[in-house]
Design a protein around this nucleic acid. Structure first.
Length: 271
DNA sequence: CCCGATTCCTGTAGGC
DNA sequence: TGCCTACAGGAATCGG
């Protein structure tokens, strides 16, 4: 499931190969993703020059000479750079043909991803306009989290997974960050002190940076732009470790559902 | 405004 | 072996 570290890993891997190249042709085999791929995207992208590859939250932003491609990988999407593409497999929905035989191929079994276009500054696009700060940027802090969470009853885990509060933190890293910070994931956001919010903000930064260093987390099918898995899965402290010993106190990691989502925590270390 | 439930989708795993 | 069901989840949207 691509969260911020996985998208950043893809971005870093692809950028050197894409920058300065021209899109020869876009081949779309399935337009129905989270939102339909725009009807005229083939025409809009033909002959466009790729000038930059950015990330905003979990969105990959491909800047061209006439506008920006917004790419979201949903939960099962992958982008692979292929030097000589073979015949498309099932769920290979889009091929972006670059100079020569180079091909950027989008694969997404569950089709929760999106491929959109804007000619305007991307930050004004409806999907990006209301996004909160980047967790690894200077606008994000424990104080910012505290302000977003005070007087609110929702679970702290849901607060940090809300893209309007902070972007890029999905289910896996929310669980990990709350373990590092020693906060129960189901604790009402309004009951967390400013001091503990500072710890939490630090924990989010730590876990995301560690995951980026490891090339992301491959639970089942995540691969980077060159088809390589990430290795942070071996370093997960609580996620998916129900009934296993806590790495800190040897107590037992407990699974709970929070807002229909799988959550894991150590009842002794997290309060 | 706030917050929980619902929705999209398909591969995988577990029960029988 | 095959059929069925439950489950996984990012994030917009709906309903109370």
């Amino acid at each position: 499931m691509p969260e911020l570290p996985e998208v950043e890993t893809i971005r870093r891997g692809l950028a050197p190969h894409l920058l300065g190249r021209r899109i020869q042709q876009l081949i779309i085999r399935q337009r129905r993703l989270r939102w339909p791929i725009p009807d005229n995207l083939e025409a809009l992208l033909a002959d466009r020059l790729i000038q930059d590859l950015h990330r905003r939250g979990k969105y990959l932003l491909m800047t061209t000479d006439q506008g920006t491609v917004l790419w979201h990988l949903g939960m099962s999407g992958s982008l692979r750079l292929l030097t000589r593409p073979g015949p498309p497999m099932k769920h290979d929905h889009v091929d972006m043909m670059l100079d020569g035989t180079l091909c950027l191929r989008y694969h997404d079994p569950r089709r929760f991803g999106a491929l959109l276009w804007t000619a305007d500054p991307p930050q004004t696009h409806p999907l990006l306009r209301n996004l909160g700060p980047e967790p690894l940027g200077i606008d994000f802090s424990g104080d910012a989290l505290y302000l977003a969470g005070k007087d609110r009853s929702l679970a702290i885990k849901n607060l940090i997974m809300d893209g309007r509060v902070v972007v890029g933190v999905g289910n896996i890293y929310a669980n990990e960050a709350l373990f590092i910070a020693g906060i129960r994931p189901d604790r009402p956001a309004g009951t967390v002190s400013r001091h503990r919010y500072r710890h939490l903000a630090d924990a989010i930064k730590v876990v995301l940076n560690q995951a980026i260093e490891q090339g992301g987390t491959t639970l089942r099918d995540f691969v980077d732009g060159h088809g390589q898995p990430g290795y942070f899965g071996q370093k997960l402290r609580v996620y998916g470790r129900a009934d296993q010993p806590c790495l800190r106190c040897q107590g037992t990691i407990r699974p709970i559902k929070i807002g229909q989502r799988a959550s894991y925590f150590c009842p002794r270390c997290q309060r």
